[in-house]
């Protein structure tokens, strides 16, 4: 198995308090990994370390091909990450602009996104969009340069259920077409089981890995999958791990 990310004894402290303690695991290439855990356990901190946003940590991790062209991040506060002075078109093409793509290449990439169903009024501004559309815009911007590694922090938390399901569908379509490695944080067990190959359950602080649960269901996982026994079986395993480490302790 090829690993995209290898973590060894990762540790993070805020002053005397240990937030993350001894996280050692590997994330396989071309998989979706969901990280679940209680509030404030350091899920975002872990993602910030892995994405290079936080360099003040202990232990070590390696990422294969860690250049900016191959990595992208969708922030939890997606609204703040969009640029309201730019049109939707200029928002989603920002990464390509920064990386020096030509106008023709940019137009081609936008067309590629349209074919995936990720379409917006190009001349509108993000502040005219609904929360769901803004999240979709942030998602499109994050994937327009076809990152090999995609970090997503609570992507669906601010969305209503309908938009939540829509975005899950887009994420799967994108994943099936480009096969990136996706690491997503979520506090919603249903989302985690619906989308991920591997679900890492984190404990309370100081955060450790409580359990890693594998989900071998094939993609695309449609809405019927959410009603299946297979889904419920995995969800029940995740819930048990969550219960053992978070609720009972």
């Amino acid at each position: 198995m090829h690993f995209h990310i290898q973590m060894k004894d990762l540790e993070k402290r805020y002053g005397p308090e240990k937030i993350i303690d001894n996280i050692t695991t590997n994330i396989a290439k071309n998989t979706i990994t969901a990280i679940v855990g209680p509030n404030g356990c350091g899920k975002t901190t872990l993602l910030n370390i892995l994405s290079g946003l936080d360099n003040n940590y202990g232990g070590d991790y390696t990422i294969k091909s860690p250049d900016s062209n191959s990595m992208s991040y969708i922030f939890q506060n997606y609204r703040d990450s969009l640029l309201p002075w730019r049109t939707n078109y200029k928002n989603i093409t920002l990464p390509l602009e920064i990386q020096g793509y030509s106008k023709k290449e940019i137009a081609d990439k936008v067309e590629e996104m349209k074919n995936l169903g990720l379409e917006f009024d190009p001349n509108q501004y993000s502040y005219n969009l609904s929360g769901g559309q803004q999240q979709m815009l942030a998602f499109t911007r994050a994937v327009i340069n076809n990152p090999k590694l995609l970090f997503i922090d609570e992507p669906f938390s601010a969305l209503d259920y309908e938009n939540n399901l829509k975005l899950r569908d887009h994420l799967q379509k994108y994943y099936l077409k480009y096969k990136p490695t996706i690491v997503m944080i979520t506090h919603n067990l249903e989302e985690a089981v619906h989308l991920a190959n591997n679900i890492i359950v984190l404990s309370k602080k100081p955060t450790r890995i409580a359990k890693i649960i594998e989900n071998q269901a094939p993609y695309p996982r449609n809405l019927d999958y959410l009603k299946s026994d297979e889904f419920n079986k995995v969800k029940s395993q995740v819930f048990s791990a969550f219960q053992d480490t978070v609720i009972k302790t």
């Binding site: 994405s51 992208s72 990450s81």
Partner: peptide
């Protein structure tokens, strides 16, 4: 400036000049 915007631009590989001019 909203820090998330600067972080997002950094992760896209923006140079200091690009962060200044575009954000």
């Amino acid at each position: 400036t909203k820090k998330t915007r600067i972080l997002a631009a950094k992760l896209m590989g923006a140079t200091k000049k690009q962060i200044f001019g575009k954000i």
